[in-house]
């Protein structure tokens, strides 16, 4: 009787007039690799950002590892958590951004050691050893002293993945990790993500890379206009979609 790692219940979010999420409910199980697909504006990125609270939800609830995110229930009302508590909750997730967002004034190694040392208060020596190991794992051991400006897009994204992993999260969030990369660099990043999946990390990936989804995802979720339209095994959703809208979307992107 395992519980889902992430439990999203009736979550809604609007930006001004625009309704980005309409009472979305979803479970993500431990060790699962879930790919979120859909057109831009479908809400998939918003949903991802709600999980690590970069975006605050309007209503509903998200539980991570059994803990309610961002608010505390008390006396029938919800009270917002302090910035400090939210920061602590964020430590359980690692995020990889579409535009990498590496810290340009720090080397690759420093980017990776920054979080563990500054936020988790760990000793620099042991963090550095782990960081070098992470760089080796993503294939960039030689680039430890390089600055982001000296790295290609694919290399930067791999460092970004290592940076997220250094915090030892239980869930990795990927927001279109290869969309900003030149085609010939996409493969190296997907390879790292595949290795990560095979090592048992729970992953939520917003992506347009259907090939990756087909190969690596345990579940594919198709969203449109703020709601989940279809969800199931990759082979089902991508190979034999039930919904008309799913079909239309897939035929447009293939």
């Amino acid at each position: 009787m395992t519980k889902p790692l992430v439990a999203i219940r009736s979550v809604s979010k609007h930006f001004g007039e625009f309704q980005a999420l309409k009472r979305v409910s979803l479970d993500v199980w431990p060790g699962e690799v879930m790919c979120l697909i859909g057109a831009s504006g479908s809400g998939k990125t918003t949903l991802l950002r709600c999980v690590n609270q970069l975006t605050a939800i309007d209503s509903g609830g998200i539980w991570l590892d059994g803990e309610l995110l961002g608010v505390r229930e008390q006396g029938g009302r919800l009270h917002r958590l302090t910035e400090r508590e939210i920061g602590r909750q964020r430590l359980k997730t690692g995020m990889v951004f579409q535009r990498f967002n590496l810290f340009p004034h720090k080397t690759a190694l420093e980017n990776i050691t920054e979080g563990p040392v500054q936020v988790q208060g760990r000793k620099l020596d042991e963090v550095r050893t782990e960081a070098i190991e992470l760089l080796r794992r993503v294939g960039l051991a030689a680039k430890a002293e390089s600055y982001p400006a000296q790295l290609s897009g694919g290399q930067q994204q791999r460092v970004a993945i290592a940076r997220a992993l250094a915090m030892k999260p239980m869930l990795m969030l990927f927001d279109e990790p290869t969309s900003a990369l030149d085609p010939e660099l996409v493969g190296e990043v997907l390879a790292v993500m595949k290795e990560l999946a095979q090592s048992g990390m729970t992953m939520m990936v917003v992506t347009h890379e259907l090939g990756f989804a087909r190969e690596v995802a345990d579940r594919v979720v198709y969203m449109d206009q703020g709601a989940i339209v279809e969800s199931g095994q990759a082979s089902d959703v991508l190979g034999a979609p039930r919904e008309a809208r799913t079909k239309a979307f897939l035929s447009a992107v293939i």
């Binding site: 690590n52 995020m95 967002n101 810290f103 500054q118 988790q120 915090m167």
Partner: peptide, 23 residues
């Protein structure tokens, strides 16, 4: 400074002041 920098700092658990100071 690109807002992505602030978000990346938040994503690794940094509070507002520490993110401002370090990043």
């Amino acid at each position: 400074v690109d807002i992505g920098q602030y978000e990346a700092a938040q994503a690794i658990g940094m509070g507002r002041l520490r993110a401002l100071w370090r990043i």
